[in-house]
Amino acid sequence: MRNRRRRRRSVLALTAVAALGLAGCDAAGDDSPAPDGTRAKTAPVRPVWNRSPSSIAAVGDSITRGFDACTVLSDCPEVSWATGTSSQVDSLAVRLLGRARAAENSWNYAVTGARMADLPAQMAEAVTRRPQLVTVMAGANDACRSSARAMTSVADFRTGFEEAMRTLRTSLPKAQVYVASVPNLKRLWSQGRTNPLGKQVWKLGICPSMLNDADDLDTAAIVRRDKVQRRVEAYNRVLQEVCAKDRRCRFDGGAVFDYEFGTDQLSHWDWFHPSTDGQARLAAIAYRTITAEEPVA
């Protein structure tokens, strides 16, 4: 009798363990056979990237501030590609949120003249709004220095961007980031130098590392411009590499750098910053990148 009771208890225990094991597999989404012989499907994994964020903060430099797009030597944030409300641009915020909501749920912390070293402080301000998306466009001022020798080193550029990303992630681990590539400064030189007024304005000290002596085509000038161009390309590799380490970050794949803008996309005040038309093109590039089903390769 005692032996039969022991065997009965052992069978009951094994049955309970088996039942608990099956229940645990089902709770974890196992695809073990269902009673009808079919396979139970696991719950779909939610995508990490949200193509419809509900709030936006922008950090960066004069391009994001709309500098010289409306009046000379002035910011014009209403035409900013990132957060502006102007119907001439249809900014990223307007395209994602609608015009009314864009005015209430987007914030521009970019600063004219800012370099990558300034980005962590801007990011610290941006996170106070707890945006779902942060846009980054910085680097042109790191290359546009008094001389090619004065440009920000690639190592320091990387350090600044990594620090900015850490600042964001410390406060907002799930916020998304859109990173625009640094514009092609050599193309800007080749386009703007066709305009006599533009060349005169450049003499005031606009991006001298690239634009100084715009008509000078001797060996030293060519070498200088090529050095600036290579530095911009190196900055873009840094942006891509750092962004690739964060699954909630999308780099534009070099779309801003590769865009073949003409003089219509340049401010007619300084022939350097984007015009309202140029701002609209930047907004379109950002919108395509952010709403794409897959990130740019």
Rank of each mutant, 00 (worst) to 15 (best):
A58M: 08
C25K: 01
P183V: 04
R115L: 08
L92Q: 03
E125Y: 02
P295D: 04
A221Q: 10
P44D: 08
R288E: 13
S171I: 02
V11M: 14
V296F: 06
A220R: 07
T71V: 12
R101H: 12
R39C: 10
R8I: 12
L22P: 05
V256D: 07
K203Y: 02
S146I: 07
K203W: 01
K203M: 11
R225I: 06
T15C: 15
I290M: 06
S87E: 13
L239V: 05
P44T: 03
Y259M: 12
S106M: 05
G160H: 05
V238D: 04
A34L: 15
A280L: 08
K174L: 11
N184G: 08
F257G: 09
P53M: 00
I56Y: 01
A297P: 13
T159C: 04
A102Q: 01
M165E: 02
A292Y: 08
P35K: 03
C25L: 15
S32L: 14
T64F: 00
N50A: 10
V182C: 09
D118W: 00
G37R: 09
L211N: 00
A286N: 04
A221H: 12
V134L: 12
A175P: 02
D213T: 08
D258R: 15
S153R: 07
V154K: 03
C25V: 09
A124R: 15
L96R: 10
K41A: 15
D36Y: 04
G113D: 04
K245T: 14
D216M: 07
V11A: 15
M123A: 13
F261Y: 15
W81I: 02
R129K: 15
A221Y: 06
L22R: 07
G21R: 04
A93F: 10
G66W: 01
S146L: 05
R169S: 10
R166T: 14
Y259P: 04
A13C: 13
D36C: 07
T38V: 03
D252Y: 10
C70F: 05
M137A: 11
F257R: 11
L133N: 00
R129D: 02
R224C: 08
D246V: 06
D30R: 11
S52Q: 14
T85R: 10
L119S: 01
M165C: 03
I63S: 06
L168N: 01
V17M: 14
S171D: 11
T219F: 10
V154Q: 07
K227H: 10
L14R: 14
A214T: 00
L185F: 06
T83L: 11
Q240H: 13
D61W: 00
R237V: 13
C207A: 08
R5H: 10
N184T: 09
C76V: 11
A138P: 00
D68T: 10
